[in-house]
Amino acid sequence: MISESVSILISAGLTLMAFSILYRENRAFRIAEYMYVGAGTGYGAVLSAKYVYDNVWIPVTKGETVWLLPFLFSLPLYFYFSKRYSWIYRIPMAAIIGVGTGVIVAADFKSRFTEQIRMTILPLFTAKDLYGSFNNIIIVFGVLGALMFFYFSREPKGPIRVLTTYGKYILMASFGAAFGQSFMGRLSLVIGRFQTLFEWPAWILVLTAFGIVAISVMRDLSSKKKPRSSA
């Protein structure tokens, strides 16, 4: 499994180069960053070219020449680079925006608005399920309160003010939950990278990297310069 060992070494090396920014800005991180941009763009370009090949070239060679039209109609997009004729780029872009928006908007209002209202119509009191009733009251008045919180045309007074304050706390709870989940997600990414670094033979690079950082820290401390912080 030489190729697997080589793959692990390269992955670990690139990971350590990217993690080096945590100590300070350095060339190794910049190289990793720029390589990431180039590789990602190259990979995306290949997949897109394959899509065009499968959906334009192959049908055209089979006689369905109508699929040449979208390819030809996309060529004016490259007038983006012309100073004088850049307005031509707007024509195919307008079509792309039109379809992109049209695909979303009609279905969006149903799933994000009417269906959400339907799912919020909940029984506020069920004798056999008091706990469920309690939760339903929180949800129904929470949704109303949070929506009212964003109504700025008039200053809320009286019961409306109570509702909007309640809605504000509901929003804070949901932002807190979002932070908790988001943070857990980011930690999972770090765990994934560490699991790669702890595979053999990545250990060699990890120990080397630690050695380099330790020497760098000792040099910085002994010269009494405060290193530039990365955050």
């Binding site: 279905a107 969006d108 149903k110 799933s111 989940q181 857990m184 997600g185 999972s188």
Partner: peptide, 25 residues
């Protein structure tokens, strides 16, 4: 949401998801 919009609501396809923690809320 795009999957609910394009598959779930119009065609009734049941959807299950494996997502990052960030999306769960």
């Amino acid at each position: 949401e795009p999957y609910v919009r394009q598959f779930g609501d119009p065609h009734g396809v049941p959807i299950a998801s494996g997502v990052t923690s960030t999306i769960v809320p």
